[in-house]
Simulated scan of single mutants.
Amino acid sequence: MPEHRTSAATAMTAAVSREFGAPEVVRHARVAKPRAPHPGEVLIGVRASTVSIADSRVRAKRVPTGTSLLASFTIGFRAPRIPVLGMDCSGIVEAVGEGVTHVAPGDEVIALLGSAFGGHAEYAIVGTTSTSVVRKPANLSFEEGAAIVFGGWTARTYLDVAGVKAGDTVLVNGASGAVGTAAVQLAAHAGAHVTGVCSARNADLVSSLGADRVIDYTTTDPVDDQTRYDIVVDNVGNIPFERLATAVKPGGTVLGVIAGLPDMIKAPMRGLRAGIRVVPANAPFDRHALERVAELATVGAFRPVIDRTYEFTDIVAAHRYVDTNRKRGNVVVRVP
Rank of each mutant, 00 (worst) to 15 (best):
A9C: 09
A9P: 03
T10M: 11
M12T: 12
M12F: 07
T13R: 10
T13G: 05
F20D: 00
A22N: 08
P23T: 10
R27T: 10
A29D: 14
V31I: 14
K33M: 06
R35A: 13
H38G: 14
V42C: 02
A48G: 08
S49P: 01
A54K: 02
A60Q: 11
T65Q: 15
S68A: 15
L69P: 00
S72R: 08
R78V: 11
R78N: 10
R81Q: 13
G97H: 09
T101K: 05
P105M: 07
G106M: 09
A111H: 04
A116F: 04
A121C: 09
V134Y: 05
I148Q: 01
G152T: 14
T154Q: 03
Y158P: 00
A166F: 03
L171C: 08
A182H: 14
A187V: 14
G191K: 13
C198K: 12
A200N: 07
R201I: 06
L205F: 03
V206T: 04
V214L: 08
V214S: 07
D216N: 13
Y217C: 05
D221M: 02
D225H: 06
D225T: 01
I231P: 00
N238A: 15
I239N: 00
E242A: 09
K249I: 11
G252H: 10
L255Q: 00
H288A: 15
A289I: 03
T298K: 09
R303Y: 02
D307E: 10
T309F: 09
F312R: 15
F312L: 14
R320E: 10
V322I: 14
T324Y: 15
K327P: 01
G329I: 13
V331N: 04
